[in-house]
Design a protein around this nucleic acid. Structure first.
Length: 274
DNA sequence: ATCGTAACCTGTCTGC
DNA sequence: TGCAGACAGGTTACGA
């Protein structure tokens, strides 16, 4: 679930809690969530390191560590990364606990266990499977209409599927893809290359507005998402189309529709989105 | 390059 | 009430 705005919110809420903190020890309760290296090496290499800062790349969270190491986290659907003061009991589905010097801990909780943690040397982070081929950041000032046009050029796949392809643009998931296409008034099924200049410019603006609104609202909490302090976001109260099949379009009143596109539920207004 | 599908998991909701 | 089946915000691998 966590898309760009959620991961960005987690980064912002965790940063003041984790910066300059020392990892005392690491307990792995479910080895399957550690992608690399093997869980024993993972714990051993982390112990004693200082957290120097956090970054986000697409839906990946990067925890920078002393000694030129980096903890890379992808939360996939139901993963949570929560800072906990003191010795609160472990929530169900807690798979990894990073105990910090002085008592608090960072906990990785994931019902479906799709999330993955990597420990890598800083230099090798860019070569990790998902990160290696990651597309540009949509909130980067360099991501202008021209950059988007270059990505869409020649692609016959539906525009929504292009937005969801992490190799083409980083960080967009199913919720925000539907919302930005509604904001831009573009039918999600349109071939990407069929958008004219004006539509590309509109879409680029909608992408940035929708993502920035998601961040301003501290993420969308439909089911599992909470930020680094365990708090829900409020962007679910501002969704225009996602999960609102059959309800009136907020712009024209026409009932919103749902179709399946590339295996994903897709919500849109059949009148406003052309 | 692009497509659909299955796989990875558990929880929740719907309909019978 | 019980149970089967569908569905869920993500990614990867596979065959066509």
């Amino acid at each position: 679930m966590p898309e760009l705005p959620e991961v960005e919110t987690i980064k912002r809420t965790l940063t003041p809690c984790l910066r300059e903190q020392k990892i005392a020890r690491v307990e792995v309760y479910h080895p399957g969530v550690i992608a690399a290296p093997d869980p024993e090496t993972f714990s051993r290499l982390l112990a004693g390191r200082i957290i120097t800062g956090l970054d986000r790349r697409g839906k990946y969270l990067l925890v920078h560590l002393s000694g030129e190491y980096c903890l890379v986290v992808h939360l996939r659907m139901t993963g949570r990364l929560v800072f906990t003061e003191g010795a609160a009991p472990l929530a169900p589905h807690t798979h990894v606990v990073f105990s910090l010097a002085g008592g608090p801990s960072l906990r990785f909780v994931d019902t479906r266990r799709f999330g993955r943690l990597y420990l890598a040397a800083k230099a090798e982070v860019e070569t990790l499977p998902g990160l290696r081929d990651l597309g540009p950041e949509p909130l980067d000032p360099a991501f202008d209409a021209l950059a988007l046009a270059a990505i869409l050029a020649g692609r016959r796949r539906p525009i929504k599927q292009v937005l969801l392809d992490q190799r083409l643009v980083a960080g967009i998931g199913n919720i925000y893809a539907d919302e930005m296409l509604f904001a831009a008034g573009i039918d999600p099924r349109r071939p990407a290359a069929s958008l004219n200049h004006e539509e590309v410019a509109r879409l680029r603006g909608a992408m940035q507005r929708v993502l920035e609104q998601g961040i301003a609202n501290r993420g969308t909490s439909i089911r599992d998402y909470v930020d680094g302090s365990g708090r829900q976001g409020s962007n679910q109260e501002h969704l225009q189309v996602y999960g609102r099949t059959g309800r009136p379009c907020p712009r024209c009143g026409q009932p919103l529709e749902r179709v399946r596109l590339g295996g994903r539920s897709t919500h849109f207004c059949p009148r406003c989105q052309v």
